[in-house]
Simulated scan of single mutants.
Amino acid sequence: MRTSSPPEDDGVPREYRITELAALAGLPVRTVRFYRERGLLAHPRRQGRVVVYTHRHLERLRAIKALLERGHTLNGIAHLTLAYKSGVSIGELLGELPGPSETPPADSTSSGPMGDQ
């Protein structure tokens, strides 16, 4: 089993046991299991009695950690995850998606990243 961090240019996916994954993500193993139980992290692949995580799991853990550091809650992150898996766009989540007969504003320049500053 390889333990390098990101997948390399050779195209070989990296695999981790839970202790390696948790260490790379900077989280306790118990937290990784908790996120998996809450549906925030996809279930790992089983190889006999061993569970194997991939770089995608690591990236998801890093994203969850970053969102928590920005003040998001686990419930909010779970809601975003479910919406993403269901194909819901950010615009739909925010209730700001233009309808079929509406067109976006002609001047799309703004003073801030959200356009309302």
Rank of each mutant, 00 (worst) to 15 (best):
E92G: 00
E59V: 06
A63E: 15
R14N: 11
Y16L: 03
I77A: 06
D10Y: 00
G87P: 02
K65P: 11
T54C: 06
V52H: 09
L61Y: 07
A106H: 08
R70N: 05
T31Y: 07
F34S: 02
L94Y: 10
D9G: 15
D116H: 15
Y53T: 00
T109D: 12
L58M: 08
E15Y: 13
E8C: 08
A78W: 06
G71E: 12
S86F: 01
H79D: 03
E20Q: 07
G115T: 08
A66S: 15
P105H: 00
L80F: 03
V51W: 15
E20S: 09
T19Y: 07
G112C: 15
E8K: 08
H57D: 14
Q47N: 12
M1S: 13
T109P: 05
L61M: 02
M114S: 11
G26C: 11
R56N: 04
V52W: 14
R14P: 03
D107R: 06
L68N: 12
P113A: 01
T109Q: 13
K85N: 01
H43E: 15
A63G: 11
P6Y: 10
L58H: 09
Y84H: 15
L27P: 00
D107T: 02
A23K: 13
I77W: 10
G71P: 05
G76E: 05
G48K: 05
L67P: 02
V32D: 00
G112L: 04
P6Q: 12
A63C: 10
G99L: 03
G11S: 06
E8W: 05
P113E: 09
R2E: 14
R36K: 13
P98M: 00
T19D: 14
